[in-house]
Computed example of a mutant assay.
Amino acid sequence: MPAILFSPLVKWTLAAMGGAMVVQWAVKEARRINDELEAQRRVRVRVTDREARPTLRRDPATGEYRL
């Protein structure tokens, strides 16, 4: 039974269509991820009161920084 032979033009066309589908999927995923990150960035609360913000202080005995 002979194998089905496609012309090179059909092979290249199928490869180009597959590549376009992969690129389209990658762009859609990148946009979805960026939208999620943007939403998280908007929700994040920023501390504006510098006095209420905890600071690190060096422990003279160990040399480590602690709250």
Score class of each variant (00 low, 15 high):
Met1His: 13
Met1Ala: 09
Met1Pro: 06
Pro2Ala: 12
Pro2Trp: 02
Ala3Arg: 07
Leu5Asn: 10
Phe6Ala: 13
Phe6Tyr: 04
Phe6Leu: 14
Phe6Trp: 15
Phe6Thr: 06
Phe6Met: 15
Phe6Val: 11
Ser7His: 06
Ser7Met: 09
Pro8Thr: 07
Pro8Trp: 14
Pro8Cys: 13
Leu9Cys: 07
Leu9Glu: 10
Val10Tyr: 01
Val10Asn: 02
Val10Ile: 12
Val10Cys: 02
Val10Ser: 02
Val10Asp: 03
Lys11Asp: 14
Lys11Phe: 09
Lys11Gly: 04
Lys11Glu: 11
Lys11Gln: 09
Trp12Cys: 07
Thr13Trp: 14
Thr13Leu: 10
Thr13Pro: 02
Leu14Ser: 10
Leu14Ala: 14
Leu14Gly: 13
Ala15Ile: 12
Ala15Glu: 10
Ala16Met: 03
Met17Glu: 10
Met17Phe: 13
Met17Ile: 15
Gly18Ser: 13
Gly18Trp: 03
Gly18Met: 13
Gly18Pro: 02
Gly19Pro: 00
Gly19Thr: 01
Gly19Met: 08
Gly19Cys: 02
Ala20Val: 12
Ala20Gln: 08
Ala20Phe: 08
Val22Arg: 05
Val22Cys: 04
Val23Asn: 10
Val23Cys: 08
Gln24Trp: 06
Gln24Ala: 12
Gln24Cys: 11
Gln24Glu: 11
Trp25Met: 14
Trp25Lys: 04
Ala26Ser: 14
Ala26Cys: 15
Ala26His: 15
Ala26Glu: 04
Val27Phe: 14
Lys28Val: 07
Glu29Leu: 15
Glu29Tyr: 13
Glu29Pro: 00
Glu29Gln: 05
Glu29Gly: 03
Glu29Ala: 10
Ala30Gln: 14
Arg31Asn: 08
Arg31Cys: 15
Arg31Ile: 12
Arg31Tyr: 12
Arg31Gln: 04
Arg31Ala: 05
Arg32Ile: 08
Arg32Cys: 08
Arg32Glu: 03
Arg32Trp: 15
Asn34His: 06
Asn34Asp: 11
Asn34Phe: 10
Asp35Trp: 08
Asp35Pro: 01
Asp35Ile: 13
Leu37Ser: 04
Leu37Gly: 02
Glu38Thr: 09
Glu38Ala: 06
Glu38Gln: 11
Glu38Gly: 06
Glu38Lys: 07
Ala39Phe: 05
Ala39Val: 05
Ala39Asp: 04
Gln40His: 07
Gln40Leu: 11
Arg41His: 09
Arg41Gln: 11
Arg42Ser: 02
Arg42Asn: 03
Val43Lys: 11
Val43Ala: 09
Val43Tyr: 08
Arg44Ser: 06
Arg44Ala: 13
Arg44Lys: 14
Val45Ala: 12
Val45Tyr: 11
Val45Trp: 05
Arg46Cys: 06
Arg46Pro: 03
Arg46Ala: 05
Arg46Gln: 02
Arg46Phe: 15
Val47Glu: 11
Thr48Tyr: 07
Thr48Val: 10
Asp49Tyr: 06
Arg50Thr: 15
Arg53Val: 07
Pro54Val: 01
Pro54Met: 01
Leu56Gly: 06
Arg57Ile: 10
Arg58Asp: 01
Arg58Glu: 04
Arg58Trp: 04
Asp59Phe: 00
Asp59Cys: 01
Asp59Met: 00
Asp59Lys: 01
Asp59Glu: 02
Pro60Ser: 01
Pro60Gln: 00
Pro60Asn: 01
Pro60Leu: 00
Ala61Asp: 03
Thr62His: 00
Thr62Trp: 00
Thr62Leu: 00
Gly63Leu: 00
Glu64Lys: 03
Tyr65Ser: 00
Tyr65Trp: 15
Arg66Glu: 14
Arg66Lys: 15
Arg66Trp: 03
Leu67Pro: 06
